[in-house]
């Protein structure tokens, strides 16, 4: 346990030192503040919008941004250390390979969590301070969005670790990371939409569609945030969808957690067999 923490602490220290954490936190805070205070501009007013609007726009943006940050942070984690020669050295110490991988992952996940909670949390605090009327249920939805965002970031960090363990070359790992991002965040939904239109509802029923949506962590996150809370789904235009989706919030969070555990478990397995 202490070995894990020692390795995680080093990862966190390095990220703080090279301004990764500061830059990410500032970016997330800037986006969250912009969306909460200027989000209503398209409707002709500048001022604090309803927090539900913020949740809808912020979670839509998170789907694009956070996986990218997570993959950028993680694709180099294993292959980069092997490249620099520090991995050989690290493994000559009294540490197990799974401890190295898990320790580093804990560090990176903590960085994502720190940046997300602080960045989005500051926007929430600013909303509260500006005196906007926000009900307890809305706060709950906002908190759930922050929590699920951390989980989404962790899932893509785990995917980045898998890419980093899979290959011997940093460039290839970076390529896989970009492909993962494009695939899960952009192409998957387009493909799904195309499939639905082409199929015309003949073979793809609601159950299969649900399964297909759960097969993508970004979609699981979207479903969780846009259909999980009634007052949010009304604004997101997904109220109709919400009544169709038979997957509860707990299951969606479970799916996201599985998207953290499965790639990470596979990465640990591959790493323990890798020839360094």
């Amino acid at each position: 346990m202490t070995t894990l923490l020692i390795i995680a602490a080093k990862e966190i220290r390095e990220a703080f030192r090279n301004r990764w954490v500061v830059a990410t936190t500032l970016l997330m805070a800037a986006l969250a503040l912009t969306l909460s205070f200027l989000g209503a501009a398209p409707t002709g007013t500048v001022g604090v919008g309803r927090i539900e609007v913020t949740i809808v726009s912020l979670s839509s943006l998170t789907i694009f941004l956070l996986p990218l940050i997570a993959l950028l942070l993680s694709f180099d984690a294993v292959v980069g250390e092997i490249d620099r020669g520090t991995m050989t050295l690290l493994l000559s110490y009294p540490v197990a390979r799974w401890q190295v991988l898990l320790g580093k992952f804990l560090g990176h996940a903590a960085i994502i969590a720190f940046a997300t909670v602080l960045g989005y949390g500051s926007a929430g605090a600013a909303l509260a301070w500006s005196g906007a009327a926000v009900g307890p249920e809305s706060w709950q939805a906002y908190g759930a969005m922050i929590g699920s965002s951390v989980l989404l970031g962790a899932a893509f960090t785990a995917l980045g670790y898998l890419a980093s363990t899979l290959v011997r070359d940093r460039g290839t790992a970076a390529g896989i990371a970009v492909a993962l991002w494009l695939g899960f965040v952009l192409l998957y939904d387009m493909g799904l939409l195309g499939l639905l239109v082409a199929d015309g509802g003949k073979t793809v029923n609601a159950e299969l569609l649900n399964a297909l949506l759960l097969a993508n962590p970004a979609d699981a996150y979207r479903l969780f945030n846009l259909t999980g809370f009634k007052n949010v789904s009304l604004l997101a235009g997904t109220a109709g969808l919400a009544s169709q989706v038979q997957v509860s919030g707990g299951v969606l969070l479970g799916v996201l957690a599985a998207w953290v555990a499965a790639p990470l478990g596979l990465a640990v397995l591959l790493f323990s067999r890798k020839q360094i």
């Binding site: 030192r17 620099r84 020669g85």
Partner: peptide, 25 residues
């Protein structure tokens, strides 16, 4: 073990680097 090529993280000080390895050991 002194590896042939090792590049410690550039943004960490020498003392922090050695502290890390001492704790691991």
């Amino acid at each position: 073990f002194l590896p042939e090529n090792v590049a410690f993280h550039p943004s960490i000080t020498g003392r922090e680097t050695l502290d890390f390895y001492a704790r691991l050991k």
